[in-house]
C-alpha cells in the first residue's frame, strides 16, 4: 500500500517538477532535496488528492516536509475515508 502511494507520488513529481522517480524516497524533503518550489508543491498536492481520492487541506500541507510524511498522510486519509 505505502509502496503504491510512493510510486504514485513519484509519478506526480516527475510530471509536475521533472523529478527523477529514482530520487523519490521516504526521507527526501520536497523543497530542499527534490527542489519542488512552493507553487509546484500545490500542484503535487492537488494531483495527489485526485490520484488517491483523498482531501489534503491547505493547512495540512505545510506539515508534509518529506515524501514519507506525505505517504503516511495519504495512507491515513485514505483509511479515514
Amino acid at each position: 500500500m505505502s509502496q503504491d502511494i510512493l510510486a504514485g507520488l513519484a509519478a506526480i513529481l516527475e510530471e509536475v517538477a521533472g523529478v527523477d522517480p529514482a530520487d523519490v524516497t521516504a526521507e527526501k524533503t520536497f523543497i530542499d532535496d527534490l527542489d519542488v518550489d512552493s507553487l509546484s508543491m500545490v500542484e503535487v498536492v492537488v494531483a495527489a488528492e485526485e490520484k488517491f481520492s483523498v482531501k489534503i487541506p491547505d493547512d495540512d500541507v505545510k506539515s508534509l516536509k518529506t515524501v514519507g510524511d506525505a505517504v503516511s498522510y495519504i495512507q491515513r486519509a485514505g483509511v479515514a475515508a
Binding site: L39, E43, V46
Partner: peptide
C-alpha cells in the same frame, strides 16, 4: 477553483 494552476498569476 481547486484545479486552477498555482502558476496562473506569475
Amino acid at each position: 477553483p481547486r484545479r486552477v494552476s498555482p502558476h496562473l498569476v506569475p
